[in-house]
Amino acid sequence: MKYVKQFGILLSVTLAAEFMESLVPLPVPASIYGLGIMLALLAGGLVKVESVKGCADFLIEIMPLMFIPAAVGLMDSYHELKDILLPLIAVVVVTTLAVMAVTGKCAQGIIRNRKKRENG
């Protein structure tokens, strides 16, 4: 019955995270606290990777599906946005691609520098 145990651990951590969210007055969602709690439990050796791995792999694999309902809901929001639609699209496209390129290039530069130093 390993999946019962795995699912149980994951849901308990999620519940603890929800509780933390209700205590801390910051705009941080339960999911982020939960990620932190889970990481601490794994790093502290209180939970073994094997005790959550199967269930975690399943949920991570189906994660893209979880965005579909909200994304389909965007179709209803056209009238809210129609006045600033074009500038809005321009901002979203430019910033998203810029952030992706800057972050990626920056990380790659530092990593390759380190590799070069280690090899030479």
């Binding site: 999620t14 995270a17 339960a30 939960g34 990620l35 792999d57 949920l59 991570i60 994660m63 979880m66």
Partner: peptide, 14 residues
């Protein structure tokens, strides 16, 4: 489906 997003994010710790 959306409801599973919080536990799925917790799983990213693995």
């Amino acid at each position: 489906l959306s409801y599973l997003l919080t536990p799925a994010t917790v799983c990213l710790a693995v």
